[in-house]
């Protein structure tokens, strides 16, 4: 299990080297989207950000207090996004950040189209907010906490759960 830094947007070359269980420090731009934003993304044709090489972070942060960049911002449970993930991966999405296992059909799509899934520490939104250096609204303001935010992160700590080789770290740790 390696430890490495990665910068977005992700490329096939940058994610080829990742294996399940690796620790990664993410840098660059990532976009937030959870249930309601995903539903809108897959039912509308216009894209509020370029999906090719993008990383989506499953989260809905708390509002920033005056003088702060963002509020608490940890991952939400990922399986709820499984239903929406395949078309986005087919379009070029390269990384997803959340917590908890994905369905086999999403794991298969990650292998086929080359994308990875990372876990961030669940319930540690105050800790994780330290690694977010900028936050701006990107789309779907009407969705409130479920809007899409563009985040700039520095050394955001995640673990590779699913790599492009079909491995699943949760399953390696606790086989079903």
């Amino acid at each position: 299990m390696k430890e490495m830094k990665l910068t977005t947007p992700l490329t096939n070359e940058s994610i080829n080297q990742l294996k399940s269980g690796d620790s990664v420090l993410l840098n660059g731009i990532i976009y937030t989207a959870r249930d309601a934003a995903h539903q809108r993304l897959i039912t509308q044709n216009d894209r509020p950000f370029k999906l090719q090489g993008a990383v989506i972070y499953y989260t809905g942060p708390t509002p920033a207090k005056p003088g702060e960049i963002i509020g608490s911002c940890g991952p939400t449970t990922s399986y709820r996004m499984d239903e929406y993930s395949i078309p986005l991966i087919q379009e070029g999405l390269k990384g997803m950040i959340g917590k908890g296992p994905r369905s086999q059909y999403v794991i298969d799509a990650m292998k086929e189209y080359r994308a990875v899934y990372f876990a961030a520490p669940g319930g540690a939104g105050a800790f994780l907010s330290k690694f977010i250096k900028k936050c701006e609204l990107a789309a779907y303001e009407d969705l409130g906490p479920e809007a899409i935010y563009k985040l700039e992160v520095t050394d955001f700590p995640v673990i590779v759960i699913n790599d492009i080789y079909g491995n699943d770290f949760y399953n390696e740790v606790n086989p079903l």
Binding site: T59, G60, P61, T62, K65, E68, G71, S72, C73, G74, T76, P121, G123, A124, G125, A126, F127, L128, S129, K130
Partner: peptide
Amino acid sequence: ENARIAEKKNMPICQDT
């Protein structure tokens, strides 16, 4: 560490309040 940061900064422990 997360709980200590939240307490010190008066910010939510988790984004899901």
